[in-house]
Amino acid sequence: MFNNLSAWFTPRTPLDKQSKRLLTFGSFAIPILLWCLFSYVPFIWHPQVEITQPGGVSYFREGTLVDKEIFQKEVDKKLAANPDLDPALLPQGEPANPVYLPAPHEVVTALYTAFTTPPKRNNEPWLHESLWHSIQVIAWGFFWSMVFGVPLGILAGTYASASHLIEPFTEFFRYLPAPAFGALAVAILGIYDAPKIAIIFIGTFFQMVLIVSATTRKLNIALVEASLTLGCKGLRMIRRVVLPGILPDLYRDMRILLGWAWTYLIVAELIGTSSGITWFITQQARYKNFDNVFAAILIIGIIGLITDMILARLGKRLFPWHTSK
């Protein structure tokens, strides 16, 4: 079946279609399989007991989860008090996982019900509203990052003078953790979306300047020199040669940085008034609806993966001359 299995173990060798498909499938199937094992096979982990019959224990209710040892202790107590007790009257339960590890099917259901369940209070947003809010925060933060970061990066990558002016400070600032500016951002920008957008901006802007300047520097200098000998210089040269020359790589950089923006989102949404998907997650965790928490986390992953896939596809169309990657 896999006549070129050896390709799996040869460095940097392209795989055949079948192997690629199998491995891509496996990359999702393996973690899901592990999750299923932990959830559905009773003797793997399952450190708690879900009560099916309280059996006279005062604090046992049907459906509550207790640790195995506590359950056993209560059973032993009952037996000690009355050794001839009918076993059917003893407390009974099934092995269960803690509430924070919902089973796959519960999460899959939650993926749907989370959207259809109305919020607890009237003034609270639905899940899709929360998500949309998050996406807007990311989009604005990233937009402002690009508006300033890309031109500065290109300048720094093109002119040594700009590089010396821009990069040292950027290099320093990029080590300051963006969340550390949370309190400051709230003090300056208020409690609503502005400080959140600012955190995403701070988290991505400085990286962006440095990454874009590195990308710009990788542009084949012969192209710049050729354009100079053809009578093109200054800002015009940047627009006509540097920018299109780095565009495919710039696009790839943006895809990677967009991923980072999502990681800053969670912190950003916690400052000021909690909002968006993070608000949903914390709220659901408070109600111990961990299936919803998992569902929300999955949705973030799915949105990220899908946007990246769309952008990758789009990139291939936008840059037909770019043969590599």
Binding site: N220, L223, E225, A226, P244, W321
Partner: peptide, 11 residues
């Protein structure tokens, strides 16, 4: 100028 390395604009 014509360079040894190909310096056409690939885009």
């Amino acid at each position: 100028m014509v360079f040894q390395s190909y310096s056409l604009f690939p885009w």
